[in-house]
Simulated scan of single mutants.
Amino acid sequence: MHAVNTPVKKRLLDLLDELIAHDGFGSIKVDIRLLKRGQKEVIIDCGKQYRFVVDFEPASSK
């Protein structure tokens, strides 16, 4: 697991736990967009939006 992705994964798991504990309906939507070279924007939408910018290495350069 890349350390740069840790906050994104933690927020996603925390939101999932909240939705499961909630006594109603809920949904989570995740959008990932390319930014400038070497970065992506991850948007987690669950009533509120949480935005993260993460570094990544394209699969073709490994």
Rank of each mutant, 00 (worst) to 15 (best):
R11E: 14
K9I: 15
P58S: 01
Y50D: 10
I43Y: 02
H2W: 10
I20D: 08
V53L: 09
F25W: 07
Q39G: 04
I43D: 08
E41R: 15
L19Q: 14
V8P: 01
L34F: 08
G47A: 01
Y50W: 09
D23I: 00
G38S: 10
D14H: 11
A21T: 11
V8I: 13
G26T: 00
P58Y: 00
L19S: 08
Y50H: 15
I28V: 14
I32W: 04
F56S: 03
H2C: 08
D45A: 03
F52L: 08
A3K: 14
R11G: 09
E41K: 15
A21V: 06
Y50Q: 02
V53F: 07
V30E: 05
K9C: 00
E41F: 01
D45K: 07
L34G: 05
E18G: 03
P7F: 04
K9V: 15
T6I: 13
H22N: 14
G47Q: 05
I32V: 15
R11T: 15
V54S: 03
K36C: 05
L19I: 10
L15E: 14
M1C: 07
D31R: 11
C46V: 04
Q39D: 00
K36H: 13
G26R: 07
R37K: 13
T6L: 13
F25S: 11
I32Y: 07
R37M: 12
K29I: 05
D55F: 11
